[in-house]
């Protein structure tokens, strides 16, 4: 894993130096997964590809700003994709889908969130610490991180008042930090 992290760091440095093959290698290694991550948030495949396309250009233009104080290079790359996807749904583009399609996508999104949970390594600390939370806290955190839902959207889907939802998620996140510390 360390060798891999080093590789992404090296590839980012090469991107900053103008090496397009380095960006291509990041694309080959991660694009399929990054599209999947973006699609969990923006729902539609073509929007997810748009997000990843913009993200790769940003990775290219901002590679010189990366340093290890910002965490792993791989995490930095994923954060760029996540931020672009979140910006897109915050701009309201997710809400433009017609209603019956929305119902289908809602189910698919719920499935995608559970799939992310089930694919998580059972031996990882994240799995163990999320598993230790109440079901609703765990669910709320996964809906936010994996599905890109806002507090309001989570409250609606969990049928909880907004204030209650916020404090549940807050407490869940605090417990998760303590558990993983």
């Amino acid at each position: 894993m360390d060798g891999r992290a080093d590789t992404f760091e090296t590839l980012l440095a090469a991107c900053a130096g103008g090496d397009r093959m380095a960006l291509r290698r990041i694309f080959d290694a991660e694009a399929g997964r990054l599209i999947a991550v973006a699609q969990r948030i923006v729902r539609r495949r073509e929007l997810a590809e748009e997000v990843v396309q913009e993200a790769f250009i940003r990775i290219w233009t901002h590679a010189h700003q990366y340093d290890s104080s910002q965490g792993s290079a791989r995490g930095w790359i994923y954060a760029i994709v996540r931020n672009r996807a979140l910006n897109l749904v915050r701009d309201g583009r997710r809400e433009t889908v017609i209603e019956d399609v929305e119902a289908v996508q809602e189910q698919e999104s719920s499935d995608a969130i559970m799939a992310a949970w089930h694919r998580l390594d059972r031996n990882s600390r994240l799995y163990g610490c999320l598993e230790a939370l109440d079901e609703k806290k765990k669910r709320g955190i996964l809906m936010a991180y994996v599905g890109g839902y806002s507090h309001g959207e989570i409250a609606g889907r969990l049928s909880l008042p907004l204030g209650t939802t916020k404090s549940w998620i807050r407490r869940g996140l605090t417990a998760l930090r303590e558990c993983m510390a």
């Binding site: 997964r33 991550v37 792993s72 791989r74 994923y78 694919r119």
Partner: peptide, 13 residues
């Protein structure tokens, strides 16, 4: 980011 990253890197490409 590092805490939650495994949820992304475990995604099926």
């Amino acid at each position: 980011r590092e805490r939650f990253l495994p949820l992304d890197t475990a995604a099926e490409p």
